[in-house]
Design a protein around this nucleic acid. Structure first.
Lengths: 139, 139, 139, 139
DNA sequence: GTGGTCTAGACCACC
DNA sequence: GTGGTCTAGACCACG
């Protein structure tokens, strides 16, 4: 579960967390019963106040996406079946459109755009691998 | 130029206006020199305070997308970003990161992602061509 | 960091704040990392509305001079202009033009003008050196 | 009498005109009895509404700097003796300081600054010469 | 406590 | 009519 925050987007941080968890559930990355990271470590990793993460989890509980048990942690609830491929692509297209619009205004060509995308994917995968490696060292 | 607001998204209203104007420019619905709706009528139509629209327009002026003249109105600018190449790429990377994170959460592979990006670019270019064609028919 | 306003100059108050903060940074009175006065107390001190100070700080953030963190405060940024060389010179030329026009109206020759410029540069550098020396005495 | 406007400074246009005329009078560029350009041509040259120039002239009349005779034009009034050299330099230094501060934030060196100043002076003189040449052709 | 969004309404400069 | 500044005060997100 990798969460990436954008502090300059104007979108409240806690909503960014909510949306990203919901996306993960919608696609099956997180399945019913899966534990969510506990609040304190996640807050630390995201360099955010614990209250902010708490607020996100409360919101997710309100929306019936997760279930929290004091002292045990938070877990993904039984939910509708994961979205179909096309539905997921439709959701993703919203994000992509924003980036494509930005590219136009920043006068970045399609070729350069694709190069940047590949760079970001590489970097993202490296970071995820590093995180997994660290965890397996101290399980 | 139709602008639609979502008051529940958590995204600031003025930024929604900014993004939609930028999108209209990127897709050719608005071209350099075109007038934007005046602040007061637009605010009324969107059922939003005048200052909110003003803030959106100021932001668009900061981003070199439009130009405003007191007493005359606001107009789309012939945009040539004054930013350095690295700065432009850095800004774009923020947008791309959001999309890449969403892709991961939605279980969309890099290959599919790149395919989607190309589709979106194609569509934008088509829309741009169509828009310019329409404009030249009724000058 | 003392800010003084002139309510009769016709120059917008928020721009007066912007210019004085920029001047403080340029002269070394404020260095990167230094906190700016918080918006509310400053507004009270200047006997000005909170929103006016906010607008000044937003403008400074746009110009890459400061950085603001909700819940934390505003701080002087390690400024590296993201603008292209030509764009930076174009902006500066606007300022220079004003001074050159004033010189003409005040019957100051080019030679005298250049001498004055060098004097001002010297003075700024001295003030900057003095400021950094003072800061290192009381870290 | 060359007047240069800056539409982006936030300072009202009519005040820019007022200040520049006052500077010219303070230094002796304009002496008592000298005629000011009439409103319509000046408005045209500055690409500004006639009312704006009118407002500037009214303000100058209020401040006892000029005198207007309907149908004849506006003229510089008898005034205190032109400012001394040091006083004029002090006034000019305010403008120069602004430019020097801007240079710091735009990361322009003193050497480059001086180069720009010379360029602007050159350009300014050329423009003035061209104007005089035009006038002497059609007196 | 911090910064940031939004509203309602006044006043100004400019066309 | 246009854009722009400023005020007063409410509410939100974040620490």
């Amino acid at each position: 579960m990798v969460i990436e925050l954008n502090f300059k987007s104007g979108k409240p941080v806690y909503l960014q967390v909510v949306d990203q968890v919901k996306s993960a559930v919608a696609s099956g990355v997180l399945v019913p019963g899966d534990p969510l990271p506990s609040i304190r470590p996640l807050a630390e990793e995201l360099r955010v106040n614990r209250n902010t993460v708490l607020k996100a989890y409360l919101e997710l509980e309100n929306q019936n996406v997760i279930e929290s048990f004091p002292g045990k942690g938070s877990f993904v609830k039984r939910s509708k079946s994961p979205l179909r491929r096309e539905a997921r692509h439709a959701l993703l297209n919203q994000e992509i459109d924003q980036a494509v619009v930005a590219a136009h205004h920043l006068q970045v060509t399609r070729a350069d755009f694709l190069k940047l995308v590949n760079e970001r994917f590489d970097q993202f995968e490296q970071r995820r691998d590093a995180a997994t490696a660290t965890k397996s060292e101290t399980p």
